[in-house]
Design a protein around this nucleic acid. Structure first.
Ligand code: MN
Ligand code: MN
Length: 340
DNA sequence: GTTTTTC
DNA sequence: GAAAAACAACGCCCA
DNA sequence: TGGGCG
């Protein structure tokens, strides 16, 4: 019996193992719609195209490559020109996975290096970046189930232009409560004159993305998001907390401002997750959170059932994001400081 | 998944 | 030559 | 300082 190796991350190293054989046919890739068609195959080489990367949905490496190829026009605008970290699962989503952030010589062609100075030593290290649909699709060959971009661009690494308000709920938090919290945070930002964008993380939580002009350094941005999170926590300490420990999280939502830090990453929109079902980090229109909306439970999307949800792309809920030019003014920064 | 080390 | 092992991140926070 | 955490 193969004795598992150690790795720091519980989700990256799932504790559960499949105990029963998966069904021969999975409902996830079965298309009920008469108009749906199979995807165009990605024009890249795969060593084992039929290898299953997610047993729950029977997702194959070929399907993953075709998914990346098809989603590239929607995903690339949010990852190209940025350093990215990868989560690789050579034995599938239920087995040991690992992060890769450095460029190595065994990566597929089209993956590019971006040298980033180590914060402490100043020594440049080759990180990963990519900019083409081919390079994105080729991530399937190395079993990449998650793509995580930095919040800043290669050309201006020290000045973030994407802030993440990361809502990490205790499992006991009902979806309508989480949805109302996200809506409240959007409204608070709107009161500051800032529009923001929503996505499912593909796990239990939500990300609220605030695009800004790259005008401030990471320390400034981190302190702003920290102070903003603290204000929310103080407004309703029964529901929110800004401490990371899971023990203290019981029945609460952790406001994880630590995504807004040099070198930190957040899962990319439309990235699959390295978890059972290969769920998608899906952008949502804010209207999906309205109290009267049908969604009584958190919606879930799978990479393997892309053909069932690809029509959602007709209306890209993040369409306005890249063209917004929002500023964190000196007044706003002065209003949100952890020590004043 | 690939490369390096060991038998 | 085949099999096994090594390797593929990192840094903040707080007890 | 170690371990939890993402
Ligand atoms: Mn989260
Ligand atoms: Mn988080």
């Amino acid at each position: 019996m193969a004795t598992p190796k150690k790795t720091p991350l519980s989700r990256i190293r799932p504790s559960k193992r499949p105990t029963i054989a998966p069904p021969e046919k999975s409902p996830y890739s079965v298309t009920k719609s008469p108009t749906a068609t199979s995807l165009k195959p990605a024009p890249i080489h795969l060593t084992h195209p039929d290898k299953i990367l997610d047993t729950e949905t029977q997702l194959t490496k070929q399907q993953l490559a075709d998914y990346y190829w098809a989603i590239a026009p929607y995903m690339l605008p949010h990852i190209s020109g940025r350093p990215i970290s990868l989560v690789r699962c050579p034995e599938g989503s239920t087995e040991t996975c690992f992060y890769q952030k450095h460029l190595t010589d065994t990566l597929p062609p089209g993956i590019e290096p971006i040298d980033i100075p180590n914060q402490r030593t100043g020594k440049p290290e080759p990180y990963i970046t990519l900019s083409t649909p081919e390079a994105l699709a080729s991530l399937a060959q190395i079993s990449v189930l998650e793509v995580h971009p930095w919040g800043s661009r290669n050309q201006d690494l020290e000045h973030p232009d994407r802030l993440i308000f990361d809502l990490d709920p205790d499992p006991s938090i009902p979806w309508p409560v989480l949805a109302a919290s996200a809506t409240e945070i959007r409204k608070r930002l709107q009161q500051l004159g800032l529009e923001s964008f929503l996505k499912l993380t593909g796990g239990k939580g939500l990300h609220i993305v605030l695009p800004i002009q790259p005008e401030h350094d990471w320390a400034t941005i981190k302190d702003f998001t920290h102070a903003f999170a603290l204000e929310i926590e103080h407004s309703n300490p029964q529901l929110y907390l800004t401490k990371m420990s899971k023990a203290a999280r019981k029945d609460r939502i952790f406001l994880d401002y630590l995504r807004n830090e040099r070198g930190a990453t957040a899962v990319a929109p439309y990235s699959p997750r390295a978890r059972t079902g290969a769920t998608i980090a899906m952008p949502l229109p804010w209207s999906d959170l309205k109290p009267n909306h049908k969604l009584a439970e958190r919606p879930t999307f799978h990479a393997a059932s892309f053909s069932d949800w690809k029509s959602r792309l007709h209306h890209d809920p993040w369409k306005q994001l890249p063209s917004l030019r929002q500023h964190l003014t000196p007044e706003l920064l002065a209003q949100f400081k952890t020590s004043k």
